[in-house]
């Protein structure tokens, strides 16, 4: 009887822990990590990546399709290059597509947005290891203000 009571209470303890774990998995953590399944790697070079970080999301039309996996500088002019993993579910991105560093909201986190390009004969789809040909750099607030003042001066 004593043993039975102990077993039941330990059972309750274990069950409660499982509930907590499921809650953390489904409600709290990003359970659908897009790069968990099979994925392929693309890269893009920018003039300026702003506040982009490793693990920042990559989105098409607001839907997350991958994550930034690596950021480094390349060549004599130290051009920033961003590597990203994209889920193989989305493997029909044409080489004419444009990738931009975007900001969610006014002060929110930065992410990569892919704008799919036109598809035509002779246009290839991007494959593992390919690089985007068109990219838009991050908008840096100071530069924007500078440009704005400059154009005001022109008028």
């Amino acid at each position: 009887m004593e043993t039975r009571k102990i077993e039941i209470l330990v059972g309750v303890f274990v069950a409660a822990t499982i509930v907590a774990l499921v809650f953390l998995a489904l409600r709290v953590a990003s359970n659908t990590d897009i790069t968990r399944g099979s994925s392929y790697t693309l890269s893009a070079s920018f003039d300026n990546i702003g506040g982009l970080k490793v693990r920042s999301p990559v989105k098409i039309g607001g839907v997350t399709v991958g994550r930034v996996t690596n950021i480094y500088l390349e060549g004599d002019y130290y051009e920033p290059v961003v590597e990203m993993q994209i889920s193989t579910t989305y493997d029909q991105i044409p080489e004419t597509s444009t990738v931009s560093v975007l900001t969610s909201g006014l002060l929110g986190e930065q992410y990569l947005g892919i704008e799919p390009g036109f598809i035509d004969e002779g246009i290839m789809m991007l494959e593992n290891g390919d690089r985007f040909m068109n990219s838009n750099s991050a908008m840096v607030l100071e530069e924007l203000i500078g440009q704005f003042l400059f154009s005001q001066g022109d008028n």
């Binding site: 998995a25 709290v28 953590a29 990003s30 990590d33």
Partner: peptide, 15 residues
């Protein structure tokens, strides 16, 4: 509350 939480909490890194 929940969606921003989900976006920034990672299963492996955090949990």
């Amino acid at each position: 509350f929940w969606s921003v939480m989900q976006a920034s909490v990672d299963w492996r890194d955090d949990v």
